[in-house]
Protein backbone atom coordinates (compact mmCIF):
# COMPACT_ATOMS: atom_id res chain seq x y z
CA UNK A 1 0.00 0.00 0.00
CA UNK A 2 1.44 3.35 -0.97
CA UNK A 3 0.88 6.48 1.05
CA UNK A 4 -1.45 9.08 -0.37
CA UNK A 5 -3.57 11.50 1.62
CA UNK A 6 -7.08 12.52 0.67
CA UNK A 7 -7.39 16.23 -0.01
CA UNK A 8 -9.97 18.27 1.87
CA UNK A 9 -13.24 19.68 0.52
CA UNK A 10 -11.60 22.99 -0.43
CA UNK A 11 -9.39 21.17 -2.89
CA UNK A 12 -12.43 19.37 -4.22
CA UNK A 13 -13.89 22.75 -5.17
CA UNK A 14 -10.63 23.62 -6.93
CA UNK A 15 -10.32 20.33 -8.81
CA UNK A 16 -12.68 21.21 -11.70
CA UNK A 17 -10.83 24.50 -12.18
CA UNK A 18 -7.48 22.70 -12.25
CA UNK A 19 -8.77 20.16 -14.76
CA UNK A 20 -10.19 23.01 -16.86
CA UNK A 21 -6.75 24.67 -16.82
CA UNK A 22 -5.18 21.43 -18.06
CA UNK A 23 -7.89 21.10 -20.72
CA UNK A 24 -7.23 24.70 -21.80
CA UNK A 25 -3.60 23.80 -22.46
CA UNK A 26 -4.85 20.88 -24.56
CA UNK A 27 -7.30 23.07 -26.46
CA UNK A 28 -4.58 25.64 -27.10
CA UNK A 29 -2.35 22.91 -28.56
CA UNK A 30 -5.20 21.70 -30.78
CA UNK A 31 -6.04 25.21 -31.95
CA UNK A 32 -2.37 26.05 -32.58
CA UNK A 33 -2.08 23.08 -34.85
CA UNK A 34 -5.34 23.97 -36.60
CA UNK A 35 -4.09 27.52 -37.12
CA UNK A 36 -0.84 26.23 -38.64
CA UNK A 37 -2.80 23.90 -40.90
CA UNK A 38 -4.79 26.92 -42.13
CA UNK A 39 -1.55 28.75 -42.86
CA UNK A 40 -2.02 31.31 -40.10
CA UNK A 41 0.55 32.23 -37.47
CA UNK A 42 0.73 29.25 -35.10
CA UNK A 43 0.70 31.44 -31.99
CA UNK A 44 -2.66 32.91 -32.97
CA UNK A 45 -4.11 29.53 -32.01
CA UNK A 46 -3.16 29.98 -28.35
CA UNK A 47 -5.77 32.66 -27.85
CA UNK A 48 -8.43 30.93 -29.95
CA UNK A 49 -9.95 28.81 -27.14
CA UNK A 50 -10.65 32.02 -25.22
CA UNK A 51 -11.97 33.88 -28.26
CA UNK A 52 -14.21 30.94 -29.14
CA UNK A 53 -15.40 30.64 -25.52
CA UNK A 54 -16.29 34.33 -25.40
CA UNK A 55 -18.16 34.03 -28.68
CA UNK A 56 -20.13 30.95 -27.66
CA UNK A 57 -20.97 32.20 -24.16
CA UNK A 58 -22.55 35.34 -25.63
CA UNK A 59 -24.36 33.49 -28.41
CA UNK A 60 -28.08 32.94 -28.02
CA UNK A 61 -29.07 29.29 -27.72
CA UNK A 62 -31.00 27.85 -30.64
CA UNK A 63 -33.51 25.10 -29.91
CA UNK A 64 -34.89 22.64 -32.44
CA UNK A 65 -38.54 21.66 -32.82
CA UNK A 66 -39.77 18.93 -30.44
CA UNK A 67 -36.33 18.53 -28.87
CA UNK A 68 -36.06 16.31 -25.80
CA UNK A 69 -34.80 19.18 -23.68
CA UNK A 70 -34.31 17.17 -20.47
CA UNK A 71 -32.18 14.41 -21.95
CA UNK A 72 -30.30 16.86 -24.17
CA UNK A 73 -29.33 19.00 -21.19
CA UNK A 74 -28.34 15.91 -19.19
CA UNK A 75 -25.96 14.94 -21.98
CA UNK A 76 -24.48 18.40 -22.47
CA UNK A 77 -24.04 19.16 -18.79
CA UNK A 78 -22.96 15.60 -18.10
CA UNK A 79 -19.84 15.63 -20.29
CA UNK A 80 -17.78 18.05 -18.14
CA UNK A 81 -19.14 16.48 -14.93
CA UNK A 82 -18.12 12.96 -15.97
CA UNK A 83 -14.68 14.23 -17.01
CA UNK A 84 -14.15 15.69 -13.53
CA UNK A 85 -15.45 12.47 -11.92
CA UNK A 86 -12.90 10.54 -13.99
CA UNK A 87 -10.10 12.68 -12.62
CA UNK A 88 -11.01 12.57 -8.91
CA UNK A 89 -9.42 9.15 -8.36
CA UNK A 90 -6.08 10.18 -9.90
CA UNK A 91 -3.39 10.98 -7.33
CA UNK A 92 -1.43 14.15 -8.09
CA UNK A 93 1.81 13.52 -6.27
CA UNK A 94 0.98 12.57 -2.68
CA UNK A 95 -2.61 13.89 -2.72
CA UNK A 96 -5.78 12.47 -4.20
CA UNK A 97 -9.38 13.62 -3.92
CA UNK A 98 -10.96 10.19 -3.54
CA UNK A 99 -8.63 7.40 -2.49
CA UNK A 100 -10.92 4.67 -3.83
CA UNK A 101 -9.75 1.06 -3.46
CA UNK A 102 -11.32 0.43 -6.88
CA UNK A 103 -10.23 3.62 -8.65
CA UNK A 104 -9.41 1.83 -11.91
CA UNK A 105 -12.94 0.38 -12.10
CA UNK A 106 -14.40 3.78 -11.22
CA UNK A 107 -12.50 5.37 -14.13
CA UNK A 108 -13.87 2.69 -16.41
CA UNK A 109 -17.42 3.24 -15.13
CA UNK A 110 -17.12 6.93 -16.00
CA UNK A 111 -15.96 5.95 -19.49
CA UNK A 112 -19.14 3.93 -19.81
CA UNK A 113 -21.12 7.01 -18.72
CA UNK A 114 -19.83 8.61 -21.90
CA UNK A 115 -21.61 5.93 -23.97
CA UNK A 116 -24.88 7.20 -22.58
CA UNK A 117 -23.97 10.88 -22.80
CA UNK A 118 -22.87 10.86 -26.45
CA UNK A 119 -25.98 8.95 -27.44
CA UNK A 120 -28.21 11.28 -25.43
CA UNK A 121 -26.49 14.28 -27.02
CA UNK A 122 -27.47 12.78 -30.36
CA UNK A 123 -31.01 11.91 -29.27
CA UNK A 124 -31.83 15.23 -27.60
CA UNK A 125 -32.10 17.69 -30.47
CA UNK A 126 -34.57 15.63 -32.56
CA UNK A 127 -32.30 15.95 -35.57
CA UNK A 128 -31.41 13.20 -38.05
CA UNK A 129 -27.68 13.90 -38.26
CA UNK A 130 -27.28 14.14 -34.50
CA UNK A 131 -29.22 10.93 -33.96
CA UNK A 132 -27.16 9.04 -36.53
CA UNK A 133 -23.95 10.25 -34.91
CA UNK A 134 -25.17 9.17 -31.47
CA UNK A 135 -26.23 5.75 -32.78
CA UNK A 136 -22.93 5.39 -34.58
CA UNK A 137 -20.96 6.13 -31.42
CA UNK A 138 -22.97 3.62 -29.39
CA UNK A 139 -22.54 1.00 -32.10
CA UNK A 140 -18.79 1.39 -31.81
CA UNK A 141 -18.68 1.86 -28.05
CA UNK A 142 -18.25 -1.85 -27.32
CA UNK A 143 -15.43 -2.08 -29.84
CA UNK A 144 -13.73 0.74 -27.91
CA UNK A 145 -14.70 -0.45 -24.45
CA UNK A 146 -13.63 -4.09 -24.43
CA UNK A 147 -10.01 -3.42 -25.48
CA UNK A 148 -9.94 -0.53 -23.00
CA UNK A 149 -11.16 -2.77 -20.18
CA UNK A 150 -8.33 -5.25 -20.76
CA UNK A 151 -5.86 -2.39 -21.22
CA UNK A 152 -6.88 -1.12 -17.77
CA UNK A 153 -6.77 -4.62 -16.30
CA UNK A 154 -3.16 -5.31 -17.31
CA UNK A 155 -1.51 -2.71 -15.02
CA UNK A 156 -3.96 -3.61 -12.26
CA UNK A 157 -2.88 -7.27 -12.49
CA UNK A 158 0.80 -6.31 -12.46
CA UNK A 159 0.27 -4.10 -9.39
CA UNK A 160 -2.03 -6.60 -7.59
CA UNK A 161 -4.42 -3.73 -6.89
CA UNK A 162 -7.26 -1.67 -8.33
CA UNK A 163 -6.20 1.38 -6.31
CA UNK A 164 -4.65 3.99 -8.59
CA UNK A 165 -1.97 5.03 -6.07
CA UNK A 166 -0.82 1.40 -5.78
CA UNK A 167 -0.47 1.21 -9.55
CA UNK A 168 1.78 4.26 -9.54
CA UNK A 169 3.84 2.82 -6.68
CA UNK A 170 4.25 -0.55 -8.44
CA UNK A 171 6.30 1.07 -11.23
CA UNK A 172 9.38 1.90 -9.16
CA UNK A 173 11.59 -0.21 -11.41
CA UNK A 174 10.10 0.11 -14.86
CA UNK A 175 7.15 2.06 -16.23
CA UNK A 176 4.22 -0.06 -17.32
CA UNK A 177 4.20 1.91 -20.58
CA UNK A 178 7.57 0.32 -21.40
CA UNK A 179 6.70 -3.31 -20.88
CA UNK A 180 2.95 -3.04 -21.63
CA UNK A 181 3.08 -0.99 -24.83
CA UNK A 182 -0.09 -2.57 -26.27
CA UNK A 183 -2.15 -1.70 -23.19
CA UNK A 184 -0.69 1.82 -23.17
CA UNK A 185 -1.47 2.50 -26.82
CA UNK A 186 -4.97 1.03 -26.54
CA UNK A 187 -5.59 3.18 -23.47
CA UNK A 188 -4.55 6.32 -25.36
CA UNK A 189 -6.62 5.33 -28.38
CA UNK A 190 -9.66 4.69 -26.20
CA UNK A 191 -9.17 8.06 -24.50
CA UNK A 192 -9.37 9.71 -27.91
CA UNK A 193 -12.35 7.55 -28.86
CA UNK A 194 -14.38 8.33 -25.74
CA UNK A 195 -13.68 12.03 -26.19
CA UNK A 196 -14.98 11.49 -29.76
CA UNK A 197 -11.89 13.23 -31.08
CA UNK A 198 -9.60 13.05 -34.11
CA UNK A 199 -9.63 9.67 -35.89
CA UNK A 200 -12.47 8.42 -33.64
CA UNK A 201 -14.66 11.54 -33.72
CA UNK A 202 -17.68 9.49 -34.77
CA UNK A 203 -20.14 11.35 -32.53
CA UNK A 204 -19.15 14.80 -33.71
CA UNK A 205 -17.52 14.92 -37.12
CA UNK A 206 -18.01 17.01 -40.24
CA UNK A 207 -18.92 13.90 -42.27
CA UNK A 208 -22.32 13.94 -40.52
CA UNK A 209 -22.77 17.72 -40.51
CA UNK A 210 -21.09 17.88 -37.10
CA UNK A 211 -23.05 14.97 -35.59
CA UNK A 212 -24.16 15.86 -32.06
CA UNK A 213 -22.73 19.34 -32.64
CA UNK A 214 -25.06 19.91 -35.60
CA UNK A 215 -27.77 21.57 -33.52
CA UNK A 216 -25.90 22.78 -30.43
CA UNK A 217 -25.22 26.46 -30.04
CA UNK A 218 -24.24 29.00 -27.42
CA UNK A 219 -23.38 27.71 -23.99
CA UNK A 220 -24.51 24.17 -24.94
CA UNK A 221 -21.95 23.98 -27.70
CA UNK A 222 -19.30 25.41 -25.40
CA UNK A 223 -20.01 22.71 -22.81
CA UNK A 224 -19.73 19.91 -25.37
CA UNK A 225 -16.49 21.27 -26.85
CA UNK A 226 -15.01 21.90 -23.41
CA UNK A 227 -16.29 18.50 -22.26
CA UNK A 228 -14.29 16.78 -25.01
CA UNK A 229 -11.07 18.51 -23.98
CA UNK A 230 -11.82 17.79 -20.32
CA UNK A 231 -12.26 14.07 -21.07
CA UNK A 232 -8.95 14.06 -22.93
CA UNK A 233 -7.30 15.91 -20.03
CA UNK A 234 -8.73 13.48 -17.45
CA UNK A 235 -7.52 10.50 -19.48
CA UNK A 236 -4.05 12.05 -19.90
CA UNK A 237 -3.94 12.60 -16.14
CA UNK A 238 -4.97 8.98 -15.54
CA UNK A 239 -2.28 7.72 -17.94
CA UNK A 240 0.38 9.07 -15.57
CA UNK A 241 -0.20 6.77 -12.54
CA UNK A 242 -1.44 3.96 -14.79
CA UNK A 243 1.48 3.68 -17.20
CA UNK A 244 4.05 6.44 -16.62
CA UNK A 245 5.21 5.82 -13.07
CA UNK A 246 3.02 8.44 -11.36
CA UNK A 247 4.94 11.31 -9.82
CA UNK A 248 8.32 9.55 -9.96
CA UNK A 249 11.16 11.56 -11.49
CA UNK A 250 14.36 13.41 -10.69
CA UNK A 251 14.71 16.96 -9.28
CA UNK A 252 11.13 18.18 -9.64
CA UNK A 253 8.65 17.06 -6.98
CA UNK A 254 5.99 14.40 -7.58
CA UNK A 255 3.26 17.00 -8.15
CA UNK A 256 5.29 18.77 -10.82
CA UNK A 257 6.19 15.48 -12.52
CA UNK A 258 2.56 14.37 -12.58
CA UNK A 259 1.54 17.64 -14.22
CA UNK A 260 4.45 17.61 -16.68
CA UNK A 261 3.73 14.03 -17.76
CA UNK A 262 0.00 14.74 -18.07
CA UNK A 263 0.64 17.82 -20.22
CA UNK A 264 2.99 15.85 -22.49
CA UNK A 265 0.46 13.03 -22.92
CA UNK A 266 -2.37 15.49 -23.48
CA UNK A 267 -0.41 17.47 -26.06
CA UNK A 268 0.41 14.20 -27.81
CA UNK A 269 -3.24 13.17 -27.88
CA UNK A 270 -4.34 16.55 -29.21
CA UNK A 271 -1.60 16.70 -31.83
CA UNK A 272 -1.76 13.12 -33.12
CA UNK A 273 -5.54 13.13 -33.10
CA UNK A 274 -5.64 16.44 -34.92
CA UNK A 275 -3.44 15.13 -37.73
CA UNK A 276 -5.08 11.74 -38.35
CA UNK A 277 -8.25 11.71 -40.46
CA UNK A 278 -11.46 10.01 -39.33
CA UNK A 279 -11.16 6.22 -39.32
CA UNK A 280 -14.14 4.90 -41.26
CA UNK A 281 -16.50 3.87 -38.47
CA UNK A 282 -18.01 0.84 -40.24
CA UNK A 283 -14.50 -0.56 -40.64
CA UNK A 284 -13.19 0.13 -37.19
CA UNK A 285 -15.67 -2.14 -35.39
CA UNK A 286 -14.03 -5.21 -36.89
CA UNK A 287 -10.53 -3.91 -36.11
CA UNK A 288 -11.56 -3.37 -32.49
CA UNK A 289 -13.00 -6.85 -32.11
CA UNK A 290 -10.59 -8.86 -34.25
CA UNK A 291 -7.27 -7.10 -33.66
CA UNK A 292 -7.30 -4.92 -30.56
CA UNK A 293 -9.31 -7.24 -28.32
CA UNK A 294 -7.05 -10.32 -28.83
CA UNK A 295 -3.98 -8.07 -28.60
CA UNK A 296 -5.04 -6.68 -25.23
CA UNK A 297 -5.97 -10.15 -23.95
CA UNK A 298 -2.45 -11.33 -24.84
CA UNK A 299 -1.08 -8.23 -23.12
CA UNK A 300 -3.04 -9.18 -20.04
CA UNK A 301 -1.63 -12.71 -20.22
CA UNK A 302 1.91 -11.28 -20.30
CA UNK A 303 1.12 -9.05 -17.32
CA UNK A 304 -0.36 -12.02 -15.42
CA UNK A 305 2.64 -14.27 -16.12
CA UNK A 306 5.09 -11.55 -15.03
CA UNK A 307 3.00 -10.80 -11.94
CA UNK A 308 2.89 -14.50 -11.00
CA UNK A 309 6.63 -14.83 -11.59
CA UNK A 310 7.28 -11.86 -9.34
CA UNK A 311 5.02 -13.21 -6.61
CA UNK A 312 6.69 -16.63 -6.33
Amino acid sequence: MSEVTEAGPLWAALAPVALLALATVGAAVAHTQAARARGEAALSGVGLPFVESARLLRQRRRVTVAADRVLWQVAIGGLPVVAVLMAVVVPVGPVVLVDSPVGVVWFNAMDVMLWALWWLAGWGPNSAHSLMAGHRFLGLALAYELPLMFALTSPAIAAHSLRVADLAAAQQGLWFAVWMPVAFLVFLGAAVAFASWGPFAVAAHADLAGGVLAETSGVDRWLVLVGRHLVLAAAALMAVPLFLGGGAGPLLGPVAWTVVKAVVVLAGLELVAGRVPLVRPERFAEVGWMVLLPATVLQMLVAAVVALGGAS
Binding site: S100, P101, V102, V105, W106, A109, V112, W115, A116, L138
Partner: peptide, 21 residues
Protein backbone atom coordinates in the same frame (compact mmCIF):
# COMPACT_ATOMS: atom_id res chain seq x y z
CA UNK B 1 -19.14 -2.15 -1.02
CA UNK B 2 -16.85 -0.26 -3.39
CA UNK B 3 -16.41 -2.84 -6.12
CA UNK B 4 -20.04 -3.95 -6.25
CA UNK B 5 -21.28 -0.35 -6.23
CA UNK B 6 -19.04 0.77 -9.07
CA UNK B 7 -19.77 -2.38 -11.09
CA UNK B 8 -23.53 -1.87 -10.67
CA UNK B 9 -23.19 1.69 -12.00
CA UNK B 10 -20.95 0.55 -14.86
CA UNK B 11 -23.07 -2.40 -15.94
CA UNK B 12 -26.41 -0.64 -15.64
CA UNK B 13 -25.39 2.42 -17.66
CA UNK B 14 -23.97 0.10 -20.31
CA UNK B 15 -27.09 -2.07 -20.40
CA UNK B 16 -29.53 0.83 -20.44
CA UNK B 17 -27.59 2.65 -23.17
CA UNK B 18 -27.89 -0.44 -25.37
CA UNK B 19 -31.44 -1.21 -24.24
CA UNK B 20 -32.57 2.28 -25.28
CA UNK B 21 -31.55 1.43 -28.85
Amino acid sequence: LDYLGVIVILMMIMEMAIMAL
